[in-house]
Nucleic acid binder design. Structure first.
Lengths: 235, 235
DNA sequence: TATTTTAAATGTAAAACAAACATTTATTAT
DNA sequence: ATAATAAATGTTTGTTTTACATTTAAAATA
């Protein structure tokens, strides 16, 4: 026996929902689709699974090829399988969601690739079921960020507490009390205060902090309970 | 254009990790594999995706065909894609995890199907990467149950608070203070006290409760924070 | 040089929640 | 009538969360 007979074979694709943070807002990275059908329309970055790779490797490859991005936070989200989701032929797609430091890749993206960042509420309609994937990824981002410190993945190496607060406020589209917020983030023990200040955003300047990566990895699973009234941010 | 040329087509399967609770312990439902290779070995219930169904429908069908089980809690877990996970030919498998009331199906299982319940620590080795799937499903069960009231899916319509506590203690392999436990579950407002008692497990008897299904659905996303020190139960 | 402006940094009191802990009660069996 | 069993229940202490306003560092300006 060399094959399972009488079973349908189909294409398996990976699509990546890539989030970045520009200092004020969460953004989504999308590209103009390179192949027919819907060629030229806005789309998530995707590609077909190759014979010798697993899905994670496929997602890494797609990210690298289309954006040059490597080694970022990447998590399997869900597999989308409506029979008619791709009009050409049956294609099941595994959605991955990625978080990147937008500044690290801004240059290389605009020069070398045809990818573009959009504010979530200004994003064009995407092909196929990609809008649904984005919606789910947003939910997952809110859900996961309320329990785990993933939002640090969106920040540069050095960041200030007001920046961090702005990020959380952007993700949850709300505002937090700054005294309570800084007490809470500092209580995690994940932040290391630096000597320098960021002077761009205020006269007084705000101290830079770095993430303690060792503690970050060790405590990733801790339940931070960052978000008051998490009911509003259902998955 | 009718197809994406030069791309590899492959098989897509669904495998179900089915948990039940016998009143004392969490159990896993597995079957003897019906096809070569590894025919006769213990395996998760699975099947190949058919042309006109999506993955959820496929999982429902597999469950129904192999066990008669229908309309139970079923959630997509993760997609497994190592190139060599199935020795016959490239097959990617989407793992679903299911929670059922063991008593509801006990009869029909033993009579009509070749499925069998195993205690998690007495389960035989499973084929392919199914052991890995089970391990992940256990983590997911603990993770999710610490935040959402999914464990009610494992109980019969009427249950007592000591039973519920036993279930939580089984899932987390620990014990809870009964005063604090019952205060906590009752504070959710999800339980409706019945007039009858269960007299099987004690002389005094324990009052039955029913789940308020309306509130259950409305509050499913509430963060219950049932579990002290959730760090131990990482996903 | 003094004053104004701006955003950052910080503290406290009250309320809500979580944890630790023992006794009483309803029922059956003797 | 008494003993045995598991269920049901309450209180105190400590911790965490919330709500809320003032002071401080630095730059810009008068």
């Amino acid at each position: 026996m060399t094959r399972y007979s009488k079973q349908t074979r189909l294409l398996l694709a990976v699509d990546c929902i890539i989030f970045g943070f520009d200092g004020n807002n969460i953004k989504l990275l999308i590209v103009k689709r390179g192949i027919e059908p819907e060629k030229g329309k806005w789309s998530l970055m995707g590609g077909f699974l190759k014979p010798d790779e697993n899905l994670k490797e496929c997602a890494d490859r797609v990210l690298k090829q289309l954006t040059g991005i490597q080694g970022v936070y990447l998590e399997q989200l869900r597999t989308f399988s409506e029979p008619d989701r791709d009009p050409v032929e049956r294609t099941v797609s595994v959605a991955y969601f990625a978080l990147i430091d937008i500044n690290k890749y801004e240059q290389q993206l605009s020069h070398d690739y045809s990818a573009e960042w959009f504010l979530l509420n200004e994003k064009p309609k995407l092909v196929f079921d990609h809008d649904e994937m984005v919606k789910l990824a947003q939910k997952q981002l809110r859900y996961k960020a309320s329990l785990h410190p993933i939002l640090f993945e969106l920040l540069p190496e050095k960041f200030t507490i007001p920046q961090l607060q702005g990020l959380y406020e952007g993700v949850y589209d709300t505002s937090f009390d700054n005294r309570n917020f800084s007490r809470k983030v500092l209580s995690t023990g994940l932040l290391m205060k630096q000597k320098e200040k960021d002077k761009l955003n205020s006269k007084k300047g705000a101290f830079y902090y770095k993430l303690d990566k060792k503690k970050y990895k060790a405590n990733f699973q801790s339940f931070l309970n960052f978000i008051p009234n998490p009911d509003r941010f259902i998955i």
